[in-house]
Design a protein around this nucleic acid. Sequence first.
DNA 1: GTTAAATCAGACCATTTCGTTCCGATTTTC
DNA 2: GAAAATCGGAACGAAATGGTCTGATTTAAC
Lengths: 144, 144
Amino acid sequence: MRLSNLADYAVVTMSAAARHCGGGRTSAAELAAETGLPVPTVQKVVSKLSAAGLLRSVRGAGGGLQLARPAAAITLADIVEAVEGPIALTACIDGDECAVDHTCSVKPHWPAVNAALRGALAGIPLTQLSKAAPREPNPSGISA
Amino acid sequence: MRLSNLADYAVVTMSAAARHCGGGRTSAAELAAETGLPVPTVQKVVSKLSAAGLLRSVRGAGGGLQLARPAAAITLADIVEAVEGPIALTACIDGDECAVDHTCSVKPHWPAVNAALRGALAGIPLTQLSKAAPREPNPSGISA
DNA sequence: GTTAAATCAGACCATTTCGTTCCGATTTTC
DNA sequence: GAAAATCGGAACGAAATGGTCTGATTTAAC
């Protein structure tokens, strides 16, 4: 129920990269300096993000990386899926069967839950995360 | 982004226990036989569910356990919270600070995401999971 | 009152996954 | 042509989880 640290770091890294979108290329070392994360960790995150197509990497000296898509077109769901794989609470949905072949009555209900969860994450674009102050003027419905 | 196996087993166990609600007491061994899970695993799950107040255990010979609340009043969120702890995607919300003291711009946005996730799980009561056939007449929007 | 059985509860150990780190391949600039 | 800087992948170590076992407690029966 808690996403991995890598996914968290990926969100932070993408948020930092979004600010450099206008400036052009950025390096992993620079992102590490801005976010305060270890450089190797940022490299690993960048690798996954690049493989997923969210980040475009340019090799060579003076190279760097930049967002492959506009910040508004990248959501939390995209970042999480890039690092964590498909958004599924259980492994039985992801093609892998349960260890026991019991007639799992709850198995058919997971897709709906997964879809609801993914929808919640897909509703937060990257542009929203770049803002310093969040937009939660109506916290009444939020009990967090 | 994927809940632990214990939480999955807890959901299955609670679903099985819900069917025995009318029959009165049930034992962990019986639930294990019905679900196909190992007996010790069910015992561990039952322990956590009892500690959370979702399941009432009766010690001694002829004892057993039964739902502490009506099945309709128990949701997926309750079961997940009983096993996994508070529903929070990041540890920074749960009182623990991030490893780095960077000005995390995404931190203020997690509560809204957590609330949305919890709401999705709270909308699935235990009675719904007991049904053999799920209610997913419109799988078009689900890409799982 | 005593014995016996059945239950849950907690603690221990092995396994897997995740996180971190390091080294190599590739590419551009001077 | 050489050098420098970058990303990409692989290996190691650590932490958390999953599974298992043994023990304490309680009830029922004799």
